[in-house]
Design a protein around this nucleic acid. Structure first.
Lengths: 359, 359
DNA sequence: TTGTATGCGTTATCAA
DNA sequence: TTGATAACGCATACAA
């Protein structure tokens, strides 16, 4: 249906190359007469010419496309990331293809395969799971790639993420400061970079306050709402339930909220809640949810800048960027009278005050 | 970097065509010896062969890709739509490319252009703005397309959306039933299909109840949070402010909530609020937000089914599907004592009770 | 100032 | 049972 350079050439009586040059606005460069230029341009318009990106990509061995893969585009955090990524890429003249891996490593792998077949010029991936063979393949094929939010400790690839350990420290130290010591952690997918570091921060905070880590209080297996719901239910039914819950992601927190509502648990009176990730609607929740905010715009900016740099300077050293999280205190955490083991905390010798500034 | 059929042919000593056949699992069909088949397959693996989708698409004149364009991927409604669309398309063996038009008609137009250049096999678009020349171009080029959520009254194209008029009737009739008569409507982008029909439903509901339409109470200009915030502020400062606000979208409602909070307006005591769109977090808001729910999964299913059918049977008659909205009553609307003009409503001769069943 | 010819990687047609 | 070859649409080196 759509016309080609050849069609225009036939119609105007010039050669295909001349048409190509004109349409690239290279008329001056090749000293093509104004008259031919005009004739070609008008013919192109008449015929509704549209360049064929497949042919062009094949010929030029590049597509000006980058492939983006995220675990869950309906998760507010990722949809914001994608949105910001989109804006940044547009500025640089790149198009992009988005894949939703649905938190499934296999879908992610097939997404990578498909994008590779499409010959994208680069990748931006928030990876799921523990396995990174497919990521390594991309890197080793010298195709520019940067990991966002989720990356791998053992794989040397450009990456941008928030300092997850610090984020957890911020949240848990705050809970401790408010008198909590039975603090549960509902985690996301175990083994993932983000989850392990958030867990690590949680544990460090407790240790620094000389609070014993109770494995019963570390639960959960993915970043979805239902996980939060289910695990909150079981935490609530413990003989010695927690006084506070820290969730590893916003969707998990939503699930926790739902479980509490069902059980007539009032937050923060009966239970305190704080979460990693700070979705737009956090302040309108009931109660307004205290949360650790990630700098999504900065993450996107950095990711695109790094990808761009990698495309232009493939030889540069790889970098891992860690961005600062921010604690937003609202009203889902209540100060409680410290229990026994908190007395140890109160001589305060192990708690780093600097981490909870801003409170 | 990546190897080609030719590389494999060279390595194995067979022709390119044979390689192609083997890799298509057409060995039996062409009676290619088991030995050659094995040699080719192993060589392909060794060389890390990966089909070049550009070359294939160019040759076959089809890509098995569909282009999706939505106004705002960070809007929960659209991210859900995209997610569901993705799942449905995957089932049918289609890949897809997502575009975020950022509620900007020009970005949408350039998105269409770019996807056309990529030679996608079909489009699914939630369009922004009033102009549909670019959509018409797609249709007239006989490229399958279905519009979702937002479409055009004057353009005959396959489409799926919720019954917007009915959705508004549901919401506003409910408000009226609760005794409200000064009901404001904060609209989205004027001139868009969704907005005009939501506005229409709002007006019909008022007229049916013999409530005078006060143009002062119809405000707003886009579907974003800030619009909701700003317009709520100005509605609140009216000498005769509304007792209830109906917002045309979830983001607008969020903005309204923020404005109320700032002005110390308690919902629903001081003001009732209800919105079109029912995001996942609606029930956790403070207060739980009453909302008109759209069947996002069904919208996605229908859209993909229609697109698929259009690809297979280009000649079929075009259809416009209208899906049923659902009113979810929570706690953001308060019953108030009817004002004067509501007495007219109380003889009830014009109100269709059937529309508010489910309450 | 413009044209010719070649190749990007596939698939499909025809031939052997 | 396999191979040679043309064509998809474009960009570019080389000619003229």
């Amino acid at each position: 249906m759509s016309s080609t350079l050849k069609d225009i050439a036939n119609k105007t009586g010039v050669s295909v190359s001349t048409v190509s040059r004109v349409l690239h606005d290279d008329s001056k460069k090749y000293k093509i007469s104004v008259e031919t230029t005009a004739r070609v341009k008008s013919a192109a318009k008449d015929l509704g010419y549209r360049v064929n990106a497949l042919a062009r990509g094949l010929r030029q061995q590049k597509t000006s496309e980058v492939g983006i893969i995220v675990p869950d585009i309906s998760n507010p955090f990722f949809s914001e990331i994608v949105k910001n990524l989109a804006g940044e890429l547009r500025k640089k003249g790149y198009n992009f293809i988005v894949y939703d891996s649905d938190e499934d490593p296999n879908i992610e792998i097939s997404g990578v395969k498909s994008l590779l077949e499409k010959r994208v010029d680069g990748f931006i991936i928030a990876s799921v799971g523990q396995d990174f063979a497919h990521i390594k393949k991309i890197r080793d094929a010298e195709i520019p790639i940067v990991m966002v939010d989720r990356c791998f400790a053992d794989l040397d690839v450009d990456s941008v993420s928030v300092d997850n350990v610090k984020g957890s420290l911020l949240a848990v130290n705050y809970l401790i400061k408010e008198g909590h010591s039975r603090i549960a952690f509902i985690q996301g997918l175990p083994g993932t970079y983000a989850n392990e570091n958030r867990l690590k921060g949680y544990k460090i905070a407790l240790q620094q306050a000389d609070i014993l880590i109770d494995e019963q209080l570390i639960v959960g297996d993915d970043f979805r709402t239902f996980n939060g719901y289910l695990k909150t239910k079981s935490l609530l039914s413990l003989s010695n339930p927690p006084t506070a819950i820290f969730t590893a992601g916003d969707l998990i927190a939503l699930g926790a909220l739902e479980a509490c509502k069902e059980n007539n648990i009032i937050i923060p009176n009966d239970l305190s809640l704080i979460t990693f990730d700070d979705p737009v609607f956090a302040s309108y929740l009931s109660p307004a949810l205290s949360a650790v905010e990630q700098p999504t715009l900065k993450i996107a900016e950095m990711a695109v800048a790094m990808l761009y740099n990698r495309i232009k300077n493939p030889g540069d050293e790889r970098r891992r960027i860690l961005l600062e999280p921010k604690l937003n205190i609202r009203s889902s955490v209540e100060q409680i009278t410290p229990l026994i083991n908190i007395s140890q905390f109160n001589d305060g010798k192990k708690v780093s005050g600097s981490l909870i500034k801003g409170t």
